[in-house]
Design a protein around this nucleic acid. Structure first.
Lengths: 337, 337
DNA sequence: GTGAAAGCGCTAACAG
DNA sequence: CTGTTAGCGCTTTCAC
């Protein structure tokens, strides 16, 4: 209906080959001829079929993205970054959600990703199980990861342990001695070792300050309700209550703050809270946080995959992105300090 | 590398055609032959190239989704629903974010969508400007909308006016007389007439109760910070304060509650709040809301597009989905009632 | 600079 | 039930 390149060629009075060259810009075509072809294409409303082109060139102008969730703020930000960058370069983004222990995983790896439909694949917070990593490599296309080390694959991430230590040290520096950590359950490490690394950073900071006995870790889901529940549990005993909480994500921190206030505990007067992420809503809650700019990570990942497609070979290994401590009123000195 | 169907055919000792039939399940193949072909395919690690198949069949097994934002809860839910359903049926989902007044719109319509890469397109809360609607129809493939009427396109939605009236009536029934509405700005109707319809429903309910003079509408962004800001503005004058607020979305409602509590106004004792959406976090804030199940809307939209691809012609027009009022403690009787 | 021809990998007639 | 043939729409040698 929209017309094939043969129609354009006919209308312009040239061969298909010339039309192709004129439209793609590859190969020699005289300016006048090109002009005529372009003209013909536009009057006919011609749009090239990428399928046909892919068949011969081997390039699909399509990047696959594998991600554990779409609906969560953090992942949504990453996706927006990737998509924006891909679109600007004329690439499509095809999305697969791959929940941690979903049975659909196999199908995604064996069927969807294996079909030579992509020029590259971005794996967001995917901890490959079993031979999934090998299957990724077998695709024979550029691969980029976000969120943790993937053997043989260039990955962008933040240094979770350092960031956690940074946040904890901030609380210590304010004079807190009883600092609890609400973080992701180690059993549910959907992504990489993130949860464990943040816990490790927290513990390292405590140890450095000689506060190891004060170690108090409550695992929960990384969401506002998760933070709420954990905080209720943690703060319900008035005699044995921490003065500060390091939450593994801003959502958790916000849930914590909500719970605390509902329990009559003032933030930051009676309880200091610090989170990680730089969530859109952090400001609303005056939340001190370590920003990690997920959207920017998406943009960078897209750039890297595009470079890989263009033939630039990137070094495998983790590239740690800078983070920034943004102080707001949710951390304060402990009472009496 | 992974091998073409010719290799499979050779290994199985049959022709390409037979191999194709055996693997696709279309056409007659003897059980033994099929067995041999399947065997050969699996030893060789064969995966069909969808591009080549598309070229001849005209089907791409790929659905395009156009949506204004990815990172917002509501849209994320819709996407999860669509993706899950598409994946189960062996379809890919290619995603385009199309912000309301973005210059990228043209490229998406003229280039990305026009390339015969999709068997169908789902348009989520896209109010087509100018000839965008015509361009959609020109694609000549099944179209499904979510969120508002799209001429000539089957659309799933909720009855925004009714839902708004429902929420408002609930507050009226509790005895409130001074009911304000925090909703989307009419100027920024990114999606359809949603904002206006919810406002209309609110006003209709007030009018029915003879409360028209009490009409108080504050436009804002449909987010927690938006709700917060609007609430601060609305509640700052203690002498002239509404006893109830109908928020156009749960995020707005939550922002409102946060602001109210921070201003020392107890919810629901001093202020009743009701929202719309059925947000994951509504329960955390004990928020009364009208659930509209965006995830389910995504599933249904995917089903409809799949049916359309299978040749079933759906009636254009809006299909209103049921909603449900979920009462929690965020609405209460006005003081003294 | 341009055209003719081959072929990417697959499926769809059509014979047999 | 299976093989042969043709061709989807495009890009790309290779001649001219």
């Amino acid at each position: 209906m929209a017309g094939a390149i043969a129609d354009v060629a006919a209308l312009a009075g040239v061969s298909k080959a010339t039309a192709s060259r004129a439209l793609s810009g590859k190969g020699y075509v005289s300016p006048e001829t090109r002009q005529r072809v372009v003209q013909a294409a536009s009057t006919i409303g011609y749009v090239a079929s990428p399928n046909a082109a892919s068949l011969v060139t081997g390039h699909t102008k399509n990047v696959g993205v594998v991600i554990p969730y779409i609906g969560r703020w953090f992942f949504g930000q990453i996706l927006e970054g990737i998509e924006q960058q891909l679109l600007a370069r004329g690439y499509d983004m095809t999305l697969y959600t791959l929940e941690p222990f979903s049975p659909a995983r196999d199908r995604v790896f064996d069927f969807f990703l294996a079909r030579k439909r992509f020029d590259g694949v971005i794996a967001v917070n995917i901890q490959p199980a079993g031979d999934e990593l090998e299957r990724l490599h077998r695709l024979g296309i550029p691969l980029v990861g976000i969120g943790g080390p993937l053997e043989g694959i260039p990955t962008i991430a933040i240094d979770d342990e350092r960031v956690a230590a940074l946040a904890t040290e901030h609380l210590i520096r304010l004079g807190h001695q009883r600092i609890a950590h609400i973080g992701g359950s180690l059993a549910e490490q959907l992504d990489f070792s993130v949860h464990g690394e943040r816990l490790a950073g927290y513990r390292a900071a405590l140890a450095d300050a000689g506060l190891s006995e004060a170690d108090q870790f409550v695992p929960t889901q990384l969401s506002m309700p998760g933070g709420y529940d954990a905080a209720v549990q943690l703060l319900s005993d008035p005699t044995n209550r921490p003065t500060a909480i390091f939450a593994a994500s801003d959502e958790v921190a916000i849930g914590t703050i909500i719970a605390a206030r509902r329990m009559g505990i003032a933030v930051p007067t009676d309880l200091s809270v610090i989170g990680i992420d730089g969530h859109d809503y952090a400001e609303l809650f005056s939340l001190t946080t370590v920003e990690q700019h997920p959207r920017e990570q998406g943009v960078i990942a897209a750039d890297m995959i595009l470079a890989g497609i263009d033939g630039e070979t990137a070094e495998p290994g983790v590239r740690d992105l800078p983070t920034r401590l943004v102080m707001r009123s949710s951390t304060g000195r402990p009472a009496g300090a």
